[in-house]
Design a protein around this nucleic acid. Structure first.
Lengths: 346, 346
DNA sequence: CTGAAAGCGCTAACAG
DNA sequence: CTGTTAGCGCTTTCAG
C-alpha cells in the first residue's frame, strides 16, 4: 500500500473523515468548510447549505478535541463522586443519584458535557487532576466527605470546584447545599408538635451536613424546653447496616423513645422495617421522619414524612456556581431551602 | 502590557502552565519534559525525577486534549440515558442508576473517562454525534427504548454502540442484558410452586426486555398446565403511576388473583403498599415478586422476593463490549444470568 | 466572499 | 541521552 497516503485518505480508510475530506469533496478550502459549518456570515447562503448538506450526508461533525485545542476552550464539567474504599459506598443512595441526574440536566441545558468520575475519598486530589489536565473546566464534588483540608487546598490553588454540602467555618471552597439546620429544626419541631418528647437522632455527626441537621434538632428541642439526651443520638452511617446498628442500640440501650429523626430516607425506611420486625408500630409507638424525600418515600408503608431537598434546584445551583468559578467570577456559597413533607409515618 | 508576550508567559498569567514552562524552568527542551513525564526509558532516572518533582510542585499535568490530538487517541466512553420528553422519566430508577455506577467503576478500572449524557429519546442520533465529534470512542446506551430502527442505523454506520437491553431479531447493534426470559420463568415458577395460580403480570410488553420476561412467565405457566389469562396482564409503566393504575385495574376488573409478578422492584413495592392500603395482606392474600433486586428490596416490608440482575457484571460486560467495538473487534450480544432471591413477599 | 499560512499544546521520528 | 522539527485537526488573521 502506498505509504505516501495523505492524512486525509488515511483517515478515510479508518472510516473517519475530517474537514479536509469535506473540503476536497466540496471543491473548496478547509477555511471555507470551517466557516460554513460554524455559520460564519462570511459564507454565502448557498455555499453554506451545500457544505452543510455534504457534511450531514457523510455524518461528518467537527472534531471537538481539535476545535477545543485551537479555540483554547472546553465545555466539559466534571462531577466527582468520592467513594469510601473501605465501606464500598457504591453510588447507591437514590438522593445522590438524583442530584447527578439533575446536574446532567442543568449541564445539558447549557450545552456543556458532563464527565462523571468516581474517586477514592482518600485520593481526593484526583479531582483536581481532572482540572489540571484540562479535561474539565471545573469540578462539582458530590457526596459525603470529611476532607475539608484537601478541599481548601484545591480552592487555594484556584481550582474551580464547588462542593455539595454544608458551609462550615474557614472554608475557602464554595459549597451549595440545602439549609440543613432549618431541615433538622423542621423535622424535630414537627415531631415535638406531635407530642413526642423522646426523639432519637440517626446520623453521623462527623459529617458537616449531618452536624447541621443535629444543630437544628437541638434548637428545636431547646426551644420546646426539652432537654437533649445524648444517649438518643446514634451515629448511623448512610447504609442499611448503619440503620440496623442504630436501631439495635436504641432498643437495647435506651430506656424509652417515641420518635426518630433519621438523616436519610433510606435510613428511615430501613429503621421502620426493623422497628416493625421488632413489633413496634409506626407511627403509633414510634414516629419517624426521614430526610431527602426520595421518590419511594411517598409510596412507602407507611408513606414517609420527610424533609425534602430541592434536587432540581441543586443541579442548577451547582452548575451555575461552577461555571462562574470557571469564569473567574467571584462566587459565594449558596443555601437552598428545605421543606417538610408530612405523610403518615408521624 | 507587552503585547509580545510569549504563549508561555501568557499562559502563566492565566494561571495555567504548559510543557514549555516546565521545560524552561528545568532548563531542558519540551521533548525531554514530554519523555520524562511519560516515563520514557530514554530519560535518565535523575532527570526524570527532577522534572516530575518540578511538575508536581507546580501542579502541572499534561494537557489531555492536546495529547489526544497528537496521539490520535481518546480514552472516553459516553454513557447515554435517553429520557422521554413526555413522561419526564428523570433518571430516577435505582436500577439504572446502579448500572451507571457500575459502568463508572468498570471504566475507571480501565483508565477510561465516562461522559454522561441525557438525550431526548426522540433524538437518539444525538448519541452518535457524540461519537462523530470524537468526544467519545464509543457509546453505551442505557434505558428503556423502542427505537430499534435508529439503533440499527447507527450500528450500520459502524458507530461503536452497545445497548443495555434485550436481544431481538434482526438486530445489528450489540446488546448486553440479563436473561429476561429465564428471569420471568424463575419468578413465575416460584409463584406457582407456592401454590399460586392467578398470577398477574405488571409490565409494558412493548419494551423488549419486558416482552422477554413475559415470555418466561408464559413458559412457566404453560409448563405448569395453567392457562394464560390475558386479563391478568397489565401494561404498567415503570413509574409509581404505572403501579397505581395496574393495581386499580387489577382490583376493579379482574375477578380473582393471588399473586403479582412485577417487572421492577419499584413497581412491586408500590403495588404492595397499594394492596395493603386496600386491605390485602402480602404475601397471604397476594404474593409479589419484583425484578432488579435494588438495595432497598431486602429492607422493605415485607422483604421483597425478586429477580436479581447482575449489576456489577453488567457494567463490566457493557464496558468490555464497547471497548471491543471501538477496537473494531467483532463482538456479539451477551446474556447475563439472573437469579431468584426469595424473601418474604412470597 | 475565499484561500494560504500560522499555530493551539503536545509527541515522535530523526539527527546529533 | 537530548534537541530540532514536523504535524495531530481545526480556526483565523491576513491578503487577495
Amino acid at each position: 500500500m502506498n505509504k505516501k497516503n495523505t492524512a486525509s485518505s488515511e483517515a478515510k480508510e479508518q472510516g473517519r473523515l475530517q474537514m479536509a475530506d469535506i473540503a476536497r469533496l466540496a471543491g473548496v478550502s478547509t477555511s471555507t468548510v470551517s466557516r460554513a459549518l460554524n455559520k460564519s456570515p462570511l459564507i454565502g447562503e448557498e455555499t453554506r447549505l451545500r457544505i452543510e448538506a455534504l457534511a450531514k450526508s457523510l455524518n461528518y461533525s467537527i472534531n471537538v478535541g481539535a476545535q477545543n485545542l485551537r479555540l483554547r476552550q472546553n465545555r466539559t464539567v466534571a462531577v466527582v463522586v468520592p467513594f469510601d474504599s473501605s465501606s464500598r459506598q457504591h453510588l447507591s443512595d437514590p438522593f445522590f443519584l438524583g442530584i447527578i441526574g439533575s446536574i446532567a440536566d442543568a449541564l445539558t441545558d447549557r450545552g456543556y458535557d458532563m464527565l462523571l468520575t468516581r474517586v477514592d475519598a482518600e485520593e481526593l486530589d484526583a479531582a483536581s487532576q481532572i482540572y489540571d489536565t484540562g479535561r474539565a473546566i471545573g469540578v462539582i464534588l458530590i457526596g459525603q466527605w470529611r476532607h475539608h483540608d484537601q478541599l481548601n487546598q484545591m480552592a487555594a490553588r484556584k481550582v474551580p470546584i464547588v462542593v455539595w454540602g454544608a458551609q462550615i467555618p474557614q472554608q475557602l471552597y464554595v459549597t451549595v447545599g440545602s439549609d440543613n439546620v432549618a431541615g433538622g429544626r423542621l423535622a424535630c419541631s414537627h415531631l415535638l408538635q406531635q407530642g413526642r418528647r423522646r426523639i432519637a437522632f440517626f446520623g453521623d455527626v462527623q459529617l458537616p451536613e449531618v452536624a447541621h441537621r443535629y444543630q437544628g434538632y437541638c434548637q428545636a428541642l431547646t426551644a420546646a424546653g426539652v432537654a437533649i439526651d445524648e444517649s438518643l443520638v446514634l451515629p448511623a452511617a448512610f447504609t442499611e447496616e448503619g440503620a440496623r446498628l442504630a436501631v439495635e442500640t436504641l432498643q437495647s440501650r435506651v430506656s424509652s423513645f417515641d420518635a426518630v429523626f433519621a438523616c436519610s430516607d433510606l435510613l428511615a425506611m430501613t429503621a421502620i422495617n426493623l422497628f416493625r420486625q421488632a413489633g413496634l408500630r409506626v407511627p403509633e409507638d414510634v414516629a419517624v421522619v426521614g430526610y431527602d424525600d426520595i421518590a419511594l418515600a411517598r409510596y412507602f408503608h407507611p408513606p414517609l414524612s420527610t424533609v425534602q431537598q430541592p434536587i432540581a434546584a441543586a443541579g442548577e445551583a451547582l452548575v451555575k456556581a461552577v461555571l462562574r468559578l470557571a469564569d473567574y467570577e467571584p462566587t459565594g456559597p449558596e443555601l437552598l431551602p428545605t421543606e417538610l413533607i408530612v405523610r403518615q409515618s408521624t
